[in-house]
Design a binder for these strands. Structure first.
Lengths: 178, 178
DNA sequence: CCTCGTGTTCATTTTTTCTTGAACAAATTA
DNA sequence: TAATTTGTTCAAGAAAAAATGAACACGAGG
């Protein structure tokens, strides 16, 4: 796969005469976000969309995204929903214009907080439930069998982990300025 | 796909008479780790291996893992390498025994620290390099073009994000007791 | 009620990632 | 040194995830 020039077809809006315009740079910034998305195991398209909105000076429409990034409507729709759920993208309603307009959150603290709240916290709750079930199972076992005792200790340790994580989370959110 | 009873063929070592023995419970704990692995977008086999070692009372060998979890040697080898790199699994050398013995790290702080150091920190360095290149590009541009100015501001913001993250990381590591 | 503009859903295709197992290397022992 | 044990590598198949785009829903305006 040849590198570079992947994110194609960016809107030119071009008044400049000849040499490499700022769209090239915009593509680089978008690719930076694609890289981050891949680190977080998010679809590439989500990185593209966020990077595109992050570079845009003003809110962009659904159509802008589909056209300028050459992604399908499906990817754009799902990617935007994901980003909205994380509060990484806001919808701007413009009176007299039926289209949704989208804008990227550019405060790192808000992005981190959104990720913690929408992704991490719910999973900690799920984990707590799973551990409650495990605890039930383990407590119905003999206190004399070595294997049972070991597992009981291990499940207890997992509960400690979960509890610790749930304690730290609000501290982090607080640190991020709520 | 039927649920449960996926992680098969766990060593029985069975002296108990009839009803569900503690291997069932061990399987549940292993599945708990498989679930965590999937959350972290890690291969299922890595969750199995860590869960297996976490439940084991004593260090286990490569062969134990392959046999008891019914995973291939390839998966076991790669999974163990990954877990060792994260310091989530230690190798125990037992004199007079050629085989490597593996043991799970059971201190949450060590696990978190390993993740931050081996996964997060290197990526922040990579990001810093990428941003340095972006900064170079953006500084060669005109200060009069609006689009260029906007991008310059955006790249500056990204550098601020990276810098902030690199400041926070040692604080977190310190908090985790180094 | 009909049509058009906007976006969503979801079955299918495409791409990526994981697992497997056979071939291979390294180290030990006979 | 040959045979054996132990674990790694990597090409290929299997499984999972992402992207696509046509069909669909919903609402606004005529």
């Amino acid at each position: 796969m040849p590198s570079g020039a992947e994110t194609s077809a960016l809107r030119t809006n071009d008044d400049s005469p000849d040499a490499g315009d700022s769209a090239d740079l915009q593509i680089e910034v978008i690719e930076f976000f694609v890289h981050i998305a891949q680190l977080l195991h998010l679809p590439k398209s989500i990185g593209q969309i966020f990077g595109y909105l992050f570079c845009a000076g003003e809110p962009r429409t659904f159509d802008d995204i589909v056209r300028d990034l050459s992604v399908s409507k499906g990817s754009a729709s799902q990617g935007l929903r994901f980003l909205r759920n994380l509060n990484a993208v806001r919808v701007i309603y413009i009176p007299g214009n039926r289209r949704d307009h989208f804008e990227a959150e550019d405060r790192l603290s808000k992005l981190a907080a959104g990720f913690l709240r929408e992704r991490v916290e719910p999973q900690l709750e799920v984990g707590q439930e799973r551990l409650a079930r495990l605890k039930n199972l383990v407590e119905r076992r003999s206190l004399s069998d070595d294997a049972d005792l070991l597992l009981r200790e291990r499940v207890g340790r997992l509960e400690g982990w979960n509890s610790k994580a749930r304690q730290i989370l609000p501290v982090m959110l607080d640190f991020l300025g709520i």
